[in-house]
Amino acid sequence: MSENGFKARDNGVFEVSGQVTFQSVPQFLAHTDKWLQGGTGKVTIDMHGVTLADSAGLALLIEWLQLARSAQREIVFTHMPDQMRDLIRVNGLTQVFGLT
């Protein structure tokens, strides 16, 4: 099992890794200020290290979308795992996340 993590990289890119589930969402949500208050440009959440996601993880992404919109920041999710994409499709949110 990989450790859950949130790591800042250059140019507004943040890496999310580990499990994005009911148990870990509060941990990830606590990092919101790191990217939300960190500038005015686009924020990229790189999810290549996510090993497990559930509906609470999807709720976290929706919360981040709303917070970014409120702060007039663009947010993009990259390398989204198939499990998260499936949750987005099942819940009819493909347009919200720009999935085809």
Rank of each mutant, 00 (worst) to 15 (best):
F6I: 01
F6H: 07
K7E: 07
A8S: 00
R9V: 01
R9N: 06
R9S: 05
R9A: 09
D10P: 00
D10A: 11
D10W: 07
N11Q: 12
V13R: 00
V13N: 04
V13T: 05
F14Y: 05
F14I: 09
E15C: 10
E15A: 04
E15R: 06
V16E: 08
V16S: 08
V16M: 00
S17Q: 04
S17M: 05
S17P: 00
G18L: 04
G18S: 07
G18C: 02
G18M: 02
Q19R: 15
V20K: 02
V20R: 01
V20E: 04
T21A: 12
T21C: 12
F22S: 13
Q23E: 15
Q23R: 15
V25A: 10
P26K: 03
P26Q: 09
P26W: 06
Q27C: 08
Q27L: 14
F28E: 04
F28Q: 05
L29A: 15
L29F: 12
A30P: 04
H31F: 01
H31P: 04
T32E: 13
T32Q: 13
T32P: 09
K34P: 06
K34N: 03
L36N: 06
G38R: 05
G38N: 08
G38Q: 08
G39L: 06
G39W: 04
T40L: 14
T40F: 12
K42W: 02
K42R: 06
K42E: 01
V43K: 03
V43A: 08
T44Y: 08
I45P: 00
D46S: 00
M47Q: 00
M47D: 01
H48K: 12
H48R: 10
G49Q: 08
G49M: 06
T51S: 11
L52P: 09
D54F: 00
S55Q: 11
A56Q: 10
A56S: 15
G57S: 05
G57I: 00
L58W: 02
A59T: 12
L60N: 06
L60A: 10
L61Q: 03
L61E: 03
I62E: 07
I62M: 09
W64V: 08
L65S: 01
Q66L: 13
Q66T: 13
Q66P: 11
Q66R: 14
L67F: 10
L67S: 10
R69D: 10
S70H: 15
S70W: 14
A71E: 14
A71V: 12
A71I: 10
A71K: 13
Q72M: 13
R73H: 09
R73G: 02
E74M: 04
I75M: 03
I75K: 01
V76Y: 05
V76A: 09
V76P: 01
V76N: 03
T78N: 06
T78W: 10
T78L: 09
H79F: 12
H79S: 14
H79N: 15
H79K: 13
H79C: 11
M80L: 11
M80A: 11
M80P: 07
M80H: 05
M80C: 09
P81Y: 07
D82N: 13
D82K: 13
D82L: 13
Q83F: 12
M84Q: 11
M84H: 07
M84I: 15
M84E: 02
D86Q: 15
D86P: 10
D86H: 14
